[in-house]
Design a binder for these strands. Sequence first.
DNA 1: TTAAAATTTGCCACCGGTGGCAAATTGTCG
DNA 2: CGACAATTTGCCACCGGTGGCAAATTTTAA
Lengths: 342, 342
Amino acid sequence: MENKTNVTINDVARIAGVSKRTVSRVINGSDAVGKQTREHIEAIIKEVNFQPDKQARGLASKRSYLLGLIYDNPDALYIDQVQRGALEICANLGFELVVHPCQWENQDFIEDCLNFIGRSRVDGVLILPPVSESNLLAETLSKENVPYIRIASTDLEDSNNIVITKEREAMRELATHIVELGHKNVAIITGPMNYHSSKERLGGLTEVFSKHGVVIGPDNLIEGKNRYESGLECAKQLLTRSPRPTAILANNDQMAAGVIRAAFDLGIKVPEELSVAGFDDNIIASRIIPSLTTMRRPVEEISRLATQKLIRNIKPEPNASNKKITVTPYLITRESTSHVKK
Amino acid sequence: MENKTNVTINDVARIAGVSKRTVSRVINGSDAVGKQTREHIEAIIKEVNFQPDKQARGLASKRSYLLGLIYDNPDALYIDQVQRGALEICANLGFELVVHPCQWENQDFIEDCLNFIGRSRVDGVLILPPVSESNLLAETLSKENVPYIRIASTDLEDSNNIVITKEREAMRELATHIVELGHKNVAIITGPMNYHSSKERLGGLTEVFSKHGVVIGPDNLIEGKNRYESGLECAKQLLTRSPRPTAILANNDQMAAGVIRAAFDLGIKVPEELSVAGFDDNIIASRIIPSLTTMRRPVEEISRLATQKLIRNIKPEPNASNKKITVTPYLITRESTSHVKK
DNA sequence: TTAAAATTTGCCACCGGTGGCAAATTGTCG
DNA sequence: CGACAATTTGCCACCGGTGGCAAATTTTAA
């Protein structure tokens, strides 16, 4: 462990008996270096533990080796998973991750993001839902030539900068599960309907339900806010209606947890008298009693894919294919859903 | 919104009709600038939305305006709160936050951290528990002259670089609560006993219990791993012992959630037959049924304080006092604890 | 009024790398 | 074997700021 002094490129060059330009070429994997020269220099770099200064490199090459993570999501568990996935890729490719939470419904949010990008000099940004749904942000970044990747639920006509989670398809699977359990009287708590993702998820459900005679109308459809408290409140409304639904599907796990609490408070047994399902499979889904049937979104995997794509957008590799990336969540069946009682 | 072109210090200097050195002085708040010159330049900076390049600044001044966040904590909710607190301060003081999860029990963890610091050129690091308990890391950073702050539960003889959470005192409060509820047969699931924090929390509990005749011995003390699964397993052991404890105190909320699950699986009613308490007040504590009595750790506040202190250590202000910072968690009473039945 | 001191400001080198282009070296072929 | 092409390598300017020091200006003191 001799991390002591900061070795510079000049030191390496001097030791190797070459010019620093050649060392620079080696660092950057340029092909125009003789084989033995390269190996000699690489050995020395390893030996003296030379780590090129990101500041200087950035200044000269217009690259900071920093990635920004832009989000406005109350779900800490989701963010954490994204970070882990992204960092795994960053570590491999020599990037660092700078986090930037924001308020995407504020008026100055675009400016705030641009300022962040300007200040921090990140080479590109990863944009998480729901911020990823802002076409204005995407267009602005395009115009400013800032590489970005959006993680989102639909194509949004921006397919080269997006990783798509097929939420509509996922919800079809969930709806099928519910139909198979014999539920006819199903209620849905959607997310905020100005989110694409809420529309996609609802769409997937109703497609299947309508084919099987499960009617979704104003009486059993309610718009939630994706938070626990909101799920609690919406469920209290739904559960006092008559006829009482035998299943409630919430737009995410947080709200589903609220539904379970509401049922508990009203003395309604889950799943015997009420089936409940969520979306995300965040940690709460497996901790709550009864544990929650939900759609697992492989967040870490999505994040890894998105980060790779982002870095490839920043420094294009010739041989890399550039196809659209999609991921589909899948059903996790737990205690909160069961056959409807006759 | 005219973020378009990247304005440089030369542009500002030219527009203001001064040298860039003078503009630099204004940016850095040097006192050696004439009042009207300063105001003139400041106006122009605002007008053209000049944002000094962090790379260049860093290269020249040996400062990156980046802070590192080092942690190895499975609890995403805790990390998220820390980030929010830290970012609030960073935003005010012109810093960015770079995250670095690690495996502090790996052999090369010190080297890994040093490499991270070297690579990213962070100006200082915030170290979260349990990594903060590593005296070796702290000493190494001292030796390398890297500013750091540890968030930890005891003084660790490093008081100028530490923000202390008084966990022992907190646990006294919890123990008192349990004693007041009449419990005599109490079991404890500790954290890993090689963590200071686990010792502190256990110490606080036993201090109070021993004064009130509540005996803690091998029969009702078990070492957990701070995770849900561990709480589940430990509780299953404790709850099949005879006499069965009337209260189980877990070292954190994750394990307490496991205890509640174990009780549920064994048909033991909480809180009627068993009181349960945790530590942290993370989100799961209020979501679970029954909701969890716990000690709230004001994580965001702690993080803000730590970040401020860190930045002050990086660029010392003359008038800033430099006293020790401590925070004490406090009791949140919910559904999972009640009077012991006679 | 003038010299000396204090305050402001500007010049220039430098931080540690990268990029363009020319120079040096090696290889190829008639 | 010499001329020419291809491959390697080095020189030097530059990225956008900061720091030291001297120069210019203003203030104070005699």
